[in-house]
Design a protein around this nucleic acid. Sequence first.
DNA 1: AATGAATGAGCTTTCATTCAT
DNA 2: GATGAATGAAAGCTCATTCAT
Lengths: 217, 217, 217, 217
Amino acid sequence: MDSEQPTTARGSAPLRADARRNRDRIIAAAAQAFAVRGPDLPVEEIARAAGVGIGTVYRRFPDRDALIRAVAQETVRSAMAHARAAVIEEPTAWAALERFLRQSHEVRLAVRLVIDSPGARAAMEDDPEIYELRRVMLDVLDRIVHAAQAEGSLRADVGTGDVAAAFLLLVRPLIVPEADTAASALERCLGVLLDGLRASAATSLPGEALARTALEH
Amino acid sequence: MDSEQPTTARGSAPLRADARRNRDRIIAAAAQAFAVRGPDLPVEEIARAAGVGIGTVYRRFPDRDALIRAVAQETVRSAMAHARAAVIEEPTAWAALERFLRQSHEVRLAVRLVIDSPGARAAMEDDPEIYELRRVMLDVLDRIVHAAQAEGSLRADVGTGDVAAAFLLLVRPLIVPEADTAASALERCLGVLLDGLRASAATSLPGEALARTALEH
Amino acid sequence: MDSEQPTTARGSAPLRADARRNRDRIIAAAAQAFAVRGPDLPVEEIARAAGVGIGTVYRRFPDRDALIRAVAQETVRSAMAHARAAVIEEPTAWAALERFLRQSHEVRLAVRLVIDSPGARAAMEDDPEIYELRRVMLDVLDRIVHAAQAEGSLRADVGTGDVAAAFLLLVRPLIVPEADTAASALERCLGVLLDGLRASAATSLPGEALARTALEH
Amino acid sequence: MDSEQPTTARGSAPLRADARRNRDRIIAAAAQAFAVRGPDLPVEEIARAAGVGIGTVYRRFPDRDALIRAVAQETVRSAMAHARAAVIEEPTAWAALERFLRQSHEVRLAVRLVIDSPGARAAMEDDPEIYELRRVMLDVLDRIVHAAQAEGSLRADVGTGDVAAAFLLLVRPLIVPEADTAASALERCLGVLLDGLRASAATSLPGEALARTALEH
DNA sequence: AATGAATGAGCTTTCATTCAT
DNA sequence: GATGAATGAAAGCTCATTCAT
């Protein structure tokens, strides 16, 4: 489910081995770099981190935004895999939800870039693949939410959009003095949020439940 | 509580009335502009929005970072006022906490700039006034947290640092297709978080409670 | 007829004296540079030639094309003056035509850029001022052509478009080993062309007379 | 007159058949591409048009300029053939001259590249083969001019250099809104020029007749 | 003191050329 | 020998900052 053919294969001939290797390296370096320094760092930095010349980056990705989109796709792709695995493997919908929300660092970047990135916003405009990914992601979450409400574990007054929004809150890097602190702080905030999402904890919320459509284009 | 002396008074002579007016205008325009367009907009844009020449901006603030710091100070200053008012005016500590966390709108920019801005990070380095402000903010929150735990409304297994972290989560702008959606989504997320913070909702959280010191430098 | 107010005044406030001076310098340097090295030379070269920083060029002209357009306008403007003066001052329409075709070096550049530039083509697209100038230029020529045919000096089987085309032939720099040679070769070619344009020299030409409209957008 | 040895044969072994085929394809594609898109298009585009890899282009031609020179040679070579044919086949020297000047289409590119290209100028520097070709071309024209003057059809006050200059005027692409217009405008301009070159049309020209030597290096 | 013009470093992108496959 | 990937120098453009008016 991971080792498919050339990742962006879209009919174009599969890349030569070295090109493929470099492409992967670039995306990995970019993902890393975006995560650490935000989406505004010089492309040259990414090139250096990937150990390639800047020209190589531009041969593979027509411009900076294309690179961002590619990173987003690559990482969301794996986020999807995780999420679907969660649905299948976990015994309860609640557990799946918990796992979904606890998504890894990699997923964090993905979502940030795809759904939520302020800086990379423009990069996503009018990119059908991105829209598609967003839809797929919300689909998965939608299923989890409904199942969890059906089993009575998730409070009934939230919609898929609400949970997605909560997810978005958690997905941003929390900038605090110590990186370790950030990690555990996020873990704990997630815990609090989950406690707040339990059916048993529910007090009233303002407004209407947010449907998934609220976060689609 | 508003007409104190020139904010940056550092022993330097108080500004002439018109100079002071310009300074205020610039900060206001910058705050507005940062909120709308993010922290990356050109200084010249800020000048234009403030209705002054760019030279005037630079006469008042030695460089871009100084302006960012000033905006942060100004907004945090008012955040503090609100928070203290909350403590005094609200009948219960829980209500004060709720109000504190609900500060989102105005505080949002402040906190983003002071504690959380990745881009503006460097701007804050080694600025004693900023450290001071951060400390003050945590002080206020600390008091609220302890009081709320004392009155039994806030779960006992969270520390001031945890609440501050939760606050940080809420403080970021939520980027979704519709601006209105973002606002209500944040309101609702806050509701969920508050439900999760109630003593009654508590299940166990991973790790140790985060002390306020975890978020200080 | 030359020392009017700010040349591109379009409602925007008149430039400060130094800015105006630099603007003029830049246009002059650019005209010179374009004439010598074609329209593809680095903007930085122009800046250097004008004795200003590159930023100054970009402050005045949003991009390279805007600069080309400005040069074109500036020079065509003076071409117009010359042409109108020719109409008024010369005793016969033929003399005016001769003078028009004999246009100076400066005019050469102008026309090349406005009507004929292959490289700068895109720069002119959709620029209403350029269209306007082109129209005006053809207007002037149109009047001369008709008058010359009315007086019987210009052969009757050519249209304004034909004369304009001939003009275009002459307007390009003739690249030959010696610059002096180029100048006199052009003079002599013009002489031959004029001889061919006389009513008395006419043998038949292929196709229809070219109307001025053939060269308008 | 076509199947001579490899053009750049310089003592190096004749190319293998497939290599030769590639070489020809590349030159043809480059000629076409230069004609259509001007001399500034990327080498890679030429490679693509030729249906070969860019590496192959560089194996055949050490650099971009070598390719330009080769294109020039190839096209001038065929221009020469035409011109010589004109001399032989046409009944009068005037007819040969007319045909020579009308060569425009195919010759256009050649001459532009060889004698006249401002951009490709450097590419020609110090290339003995190019000098040779230029000389040959002027030789042919020289013979035509003298013959035409001997038969009394061509005005006596022009030299080979003058006619060559006129040729150069016609050889450039005429940039006008419609491509068709350009073609017929050039035809008509040629007609006018020819009328001006007739002995009968002659009025006086400025300066001295231009000898062929004026256009040699 | 205020203004806005000038500056130039820095980032994005292109493309001639080299080199691994 | 052919291919196309990688390279990096060069050019366009932006914007923080300085300085003349």
